[in-house]
Amino acid sequence: MDCNKLVEDRTPELEMEFNSEEDAYKFYNNYAFKTDFNVCKDYLNKDKDGVTTSRRYSYCKEGVKRKYEGMLIDYNFFGDVVTFDTTYKINKEYHPLVVFVGFNQLRQIVIFDAALMYDETIDSFKWVFGTFRKVMCGKRPNTILTDQDHAMAAALSVIMPETFHGLYTFHIRRNFMKHLGNHYKKNSDLPYMFGACMYEFEEVEQFNRVWEAMVKKYNLENNKWLFELYQIRDKWFFRHFNRVIDDKRHNELITEYEMRQKLPMVGLRQTPVLVHAAETYSPTVFVAFQNEYDESTAMVILRQQDAGIFVEFAVMRYDGGSERIVVFNRNDLNVHCSCKKYENEGILCGHSLKVFDTVGIKTIPLEYVKRRWTRRARAGDCFDR
């Protein structure tokens, strides 16, 4: 083939032939320059005599490549919990732009990936989730949060069956206005009752009692959306996570941290657990931990029951509130609190800190320090989490 003609045309075609590998490389370099991309030599195949039988060339736009590499690094550090959002429909064809997002050790939003979908069918979602997992080197998130879309749920059950599928409360709140907005008037307490069910109650009995009262008060027994939401209530990702990724809460923590820097750190040097936390956690997470420590100083042990290696503590604020059960293991020094704050947010609750203080543990046990929240969250190999 006339290579000079190829250089002039600069348009690749199927079944093109070249006189040599070097001619092919020059042609694709010229084409890449025209289209504002770079070309690089990829894998090479040779026969037993050492003759090249095939060569693969890869294109990349350098800025896109750098951004992708940054997203991959962020995902490997902070991709344990991912929110999948389909609310962006800004193109003229009204196709959904979907994004995979999470948050870093500073509680700032990070974007892991994005895709433009043609439609929102099960097959399309399978392609999106499958492609996402492939480009992220096969690593799946521990938890993925979505809206209540049935096609999305069906695709996730196939592509990421081991991943916990939760519902992001932002979508639930938005759908609340869509499906129940006409059920309340000015000064109605319906949104407050619904919000309390989403965020305030940790005890099942208390949640069910308020939910049933809300349904009865506003005659919502036949509301299909509300009924289906209740059926999948185990997928609601309650209070702690949603408040962590809420921008307003993040800004409050930043402000609180800056304010505390201007105040005398009374007693900090005499409080080993706070010294340890300040040295370990990122600034915003340290403030959240310090708030829990402050709560622990207002806690009292109501009773203590020994059962071999396990000790059960009943803990409550001195001025009232919910009673929590903390189980302490004497052998491995592990704790488990009925409030489940550590499981949901990744920092110890005031109840557990009260028990640790009671049994003489004055620093944070290493198994309760999540690396994603530390100052060194990005240190070391991002694949070694």
Rank of each mutant, 00 (worst) to 15 (best):
V326H: 05
R371T: 06
L190Q: 01
Y68H: 15
N182H: 02
T169E: 08
H95D: 15
V51F: 15
E292D: 08
D119T: 05
V335K: 02
L44E: 12
Y318C: 13
L190G: 02
N334A: 05
A115N: 10
T163I: 07
N19Q: 07
S20R: 09
N208C: 10
S282E: 02
G321H: 06
A114E: 14
D189M: 14
D357M: 09
T83L: 15
K5N: 14
V326F: 06
C3V: 14
L44F: 13
R56H: 08
G321W: 03
G130I: 09
N331V: 03
E8S: 09
H336T: 13
L167K: 03
N291K: 09
S20Y: 07
N19P: 06
D36Q: 12
V327F: 04
R239G: 05
R249E: 10
F129H: 15
C382R: 06
D113V: 09
H240E: 04
K340S: 01
E221C: 06
F132D: 07
N344W: 11
H95L: 12
K224Q: 14
F77I: 13
Y342D: 02
E343I: 12
P272R: 00
N30V: 08
T52W: 10
F129L: 14
D319T: 14
L226P: 01
E62P: 10
F286H: 01
D384Y: 09
R324I: 02
R55W: 07
A32I: 00
S188Y: 05
T374I: 01
M198G: 12
V266N: 01
N175H: 00
F37A: 01
G70A: 12
H183S: 05
D85S: 07
N334S: 10
F37H: 08
S54K: 10
D2F: 08
A114W: 15
V315K: 04
R140W: 08
K370C: 03
G102E: 08
L116A: 13
G267D: 07
F313L: 00
K216E: 10
K134N: 15
L44G: 12
C337E: 03
D49A: 11
M265Y: 02
T280I: 01
K362D: 04
I325G: 01
V327T: 04
F37N: 06
G50Q: 11
C349N: 05
F241Y: 07
L14Q: 14
N4M: 12
T297R: 00
V369A: 00
Y68A: 13
V135S: 14
G138W: 07
D47W: 12
N219V: 11
V204L: 12
V311F: 04
V51T: 10
Q290N: 11
E93Q: 13
S58I: 15
E62D: 11
G79H: 03
S188C: 06
A32E: 04
K126L: 14
I364L: 00
F286D: 00
V101S: 12
R385H: 14
H276G: 04
F77G: 05
K134L: 15
L348K: 02
L333S: 07
D74R: 03
D306W: 01
K248Q: 15
E203A: 15
E258H: 06
K5A: 14
P191Y: 03
E21A: 13
V266D: 04
R269N: 03
A314V: 09
G308Y: 00
Y192G: 09
E162S: 13
R56T: 11
V355G: 04
E345H: 11
L190T: 03
